[in-house]
């Protein structure tokens, strides 16, 4: 079995359809592509009384489900791709044990998500899958990989689960709230793994730490998605400060993500304004 499995080779059954890069980038309806947005200024908050809330929640949770599959696959590949050792492309034994533990957790998250899909009336593979999470899990530097996946993407998962737990609570959906509550607990653990390993491995290597944090910034900005995630009242996904700090983020680091999100939102709004004006 080779090391570093490219995203195109992720194995899926016939229900799943992958969203290709070409699909992603050639869709002119996305902001800046020339499509109208019917007067909207950006993504709107997902509240139970929003007109399409149940369908938006279903689509979001399906996205989370395929993200869980990829998180499982990514953690599994980290067990395989790196040998135990002190060198740059090697990892400590305990890091591999953490990744194996994460495999189990993500497998359970898939199971939870499948039961939740059934509850929400979503068919597995109903929506196209994009492989952005797994792509970050292909980084050949294990520290960058863990920082990008466990801190940036799993950090986003903390924000999403916390937001959806609140959504379930206010919609009175007991199953959604229950599932999110449990998954949130695991994600805090995974983000903490990322924070701990970043600090431990790069303790004497500030350059590598900076490269890892830069990779995290790039991923974080990408997934602030034009203001999709932030601290504003109307942010669709709220930055979960309390849980992020539990998971090893400093107050300043959360501030930084909050600023990134604001920046992404401003850029997104400018793009929309430009698109609507032209």
């Amino acid at each position: 079995m080779k090391k570093i499995l490219p995203p195109e080779e992720l194995a899926r059954d016939s229900r799943f359809v992958r969203l290709s890069m070409e699909d992603r980038f050639s869709d002119r309806r996305s902001p800046g592509g020339g499509g109208s947005t019917s007067g909207r200024t950006g993504p709107t908050k997902l509240t139970p009384d929003a007109p399409q809330a149940p369908d938006r929640a279903r689509a979001l949770m399906h996205g989370i489900f395929v993200g869980e599959i990829q998180a499982l696959e990514g953690a599994g590949r980290t067990c395989w791709d790196f040998e135990v050792g002190p060198h740059f492309d090697e990892v400590p034994f305990a890091l591999k044990l953490d990744m194996a533990r994460q495999c189990w957790d993500e497998a359970r998250h898939c199971e939870i998500s499948i039961k939740l899909s059934e509850w929400m009336g979503t068919e597995l593979g109903e929506f196209a899958e994009s492989t952005f999470l797994y792509e970050a899990a292909c980084n050949p530097d294990p520290v960058l990989r863990l920082t990008g996946v466990n801190r940036a993407l799993e950090g986003l998962a903390i924000d999403v689960f916390n937001t959806m737990r609140e959504f379930g609570q206010s919609a009175g959906d007991p199953v959604l709230e229950f599932c999110e509550d449990w998954m949130l607990a695991d994600e805090v653990t995974h983000v903490k793994m990322g924070s701990d390993w970043l600090r431990r491995i790069t303790e004497k290597d500030p350059d590598r730490r900076e490269r890892a944090l830069e990779f995290q910034r790039v991923v974080d900005k990408l997934f602030s998605l034009g203001g999709f995630r932030g601290e504003d009242d109307d942010s669709p996904i709220r930055l979960a400060r309390k849980f992020r700090e539990m998971a090893g983020f400093t107050h300043e680091e959360v501030d930084e993500i909050s600023d990134l999100s604001k920046q992404a939102r401003a850029e997104g709004e400018a793009r929309l304004a430009q698109a609507n004006a032209s």
């Binding site: 079995m1 194995a11 499982l72 696959e73 590949r77 067990c79 395989w80 495999c103």
Partner: peptide, 19 residues
Amino acid sequence: LGGWVATVPELDVKLRLGT
């Protein structure tokens, strides 16, 4: 088992291998 998870299309097998 971790490495194989990504290479197996059968969903039930994928999840068992992860566990």
